[in-house]
Amino acid sequence: MTLIKQLAVVLVSFTLFAVSTVSAKPFSPKKPIELIIPAGQGGGADEIARLVQGVIEKNDYASKPVIPINKKGGSGGEAMTYVKKKNGDVHTLMITLNNVLTTPTNQPELGIDFFNDFTPLARLITDTFLVWIATEGKNTAGINTFDEFIAKAKGGSLVMGGTGKMSEDELLLGMMRGQFGFDAKYVPYSGGGAVAKGLVGGESDFTLNNPSEQMGFYQSGDSKALVMMTPERNPAFPEVPSSYELGYPDLEYYMMRAFMAPAGIDAEVRDYYTGLLHTVYWDSEFQSFNIDDGKLMSWLEGYGLKDFLAVEYDKHSVIIENFK
């Protein structure tokens, strides 16, 4: 009898203990975390996503692995529809590039509500944009400064290689058209690498690329950058002037690399993932890789991030409106 009693006591206390630990335990993932990439393999977003995956895996920052999944369709439309459907799912994250700011406006038929369908977690990095020309370009030979370039571009129609209609670089071209009064023929390619190769191969005259995509040709001297669209010079490109220096403070544009979760998750879950990303952000390997690559480390979370996204979203809506 006593034995059974004792057993019962042990059982009950064990259950209580289990229950209490379950409720007191902070959130941790119960299955592998899906990291949705709204772009194809090999792009800038893909690179960061796989870097984050690698850093988490190498250092055991999370109890379950992160699995990157590319959903490149519809310029981010497919990924956003997928994450929207995953409302309340605590094992889904999405890395963003700027197409998440433009696609809801460009493709209203998808029915994506940027501000209510997602939970922004954190922005880790902003990538910069530069104006690139080939050193021995047939139409751009001898050009060394951004002003010379504008003069040339106004004179005749140059060809610009880009990453796809209505993508960031074409919007940027639209911005420059308004500011400097030149236009260019826009040829879309299937990725940043192909854009860079089109430039050096002589098919296009200039591009508005991120640093990493042109890095190889830049180092070998096959291509050169005329201006970086930031307030300050970047240590990775010491001799490239910033747009502020040249007197064009309106020419400022970034690619954000932020992370989002689906809407409808608890604050606890949001805090867990924000914390995880924060750990990744301060990982020395993550820091040095991005700084060497000319990216700006720019952690932002919470209300700051929300305000930032609201401002950027409106800014992009205006650019798209002007573009049409």
Binding site: K30, P32, K64, P65
Partner: peptide, 26 residues
Amino acid sequence: FEWLLKIPLPQGYSEPLFYPVYDFMY
């Protein structure tokens, strides 16, 4: 698929059944 290739296959409503399995795997 799940362990070697890390490709998650659809689990639908049976997803919670696999939580202990993942806990064991990792």
